[in-house]
């Protein structure tokens, strides 16, 4: 009778342990997925900002048609991208086009004094930061998750319910590694620093 109770208690404890472990793994996996969707949210934000940016700057920059075209083309490519690799490439070239645009802006002091443009610029700079921080946060979450499913005892549960390792977000080329720098500086001397 007594042994039966002991066995029963142990069994209940084991089941409870498995349940909590499973739940924490699911929570971590959801955090990874959530962090991944954050990246998409920020990329979409960037797409939404561009028409506004072009609209504000167009009047001041009559002679920079090529720059605007590069941006709008890269944007539509990024928005229509089907596969993940296609999308990351298009986002990379959109970033390049934007940083190029910000360099050109330096030649237009009138534009840089424009209150509307300044606020669009702040939003754009912040969005670029948010994109890189959301990628960073995704990698952090992947690191926690991967650690968790590799260490004992959670690896047993992960194996039982087939939780697979996730891949880190990696930017392929060195040029893409740098998130385009949106430049706030007013004078050019400092930029050479």
């Amino acid at each position: 009778m007594n042994t039966l109770i002991v066995v029963g208690v142990i069994l209940v404890l084991v089941v409870l342990f498995v349940i909590t472990m499973y739940n924490s793994l699911v929570r971590l996996r959801n955090q990874v997925d959530n962090a991944w969707s954050q990246i998409d949210v920020q990329l979409k934000r960037r797409h939404d900002l561009i028409p506004n940016l072009v609209e504000t700057a167009k009047g001041y920059m009559q002679h920079e048609r090529g720059t605007f075209e590069a941006i709008t083309n890269a944007r539509s490519q990024a928005m229509n991208a089907k596969s993940v690799s296609e999308s990351s490439q298009a986002e990379g070239s959109l970033g390049d086009a934007l940083s190029n645009f910000m360099l050109v802006v330096e030649n237009y002091p009138d534009l840089k004094a424009n209150q509307n443009f300044l606020s669009v610029q702040e939003e754009l700079a912040s969005t670029e930061n948010k994109i890189s921080f959301s990628r960073q946060s995704y990698n952090d979450q992947v690191l926690f998750f991967n650690n968790k499913i590799q260490v004992f005892p959670s690896n047993v549960i992960a194996g039982m319910f087939s939780f697979g390792k996730r891949d880190f977000f990696e930017i392929k080329t060195a040029a893409e590694r740098e998130v385009p720098k949106v430049d706030f500086s007013t004078d050019k001397q400092e930029k050479t620093e």
Binding site: K130, S134, S137
Partner: peptide, 12 residues
């Protein structure tokens, strides 16, 4: 506001 949001994203 933007800086706070950036850090909110970085810290999940």
């Amino acid at each position: 506001f933007n800086v706070v949001e950036e850090m909110r994203i970085a810290s999940s």
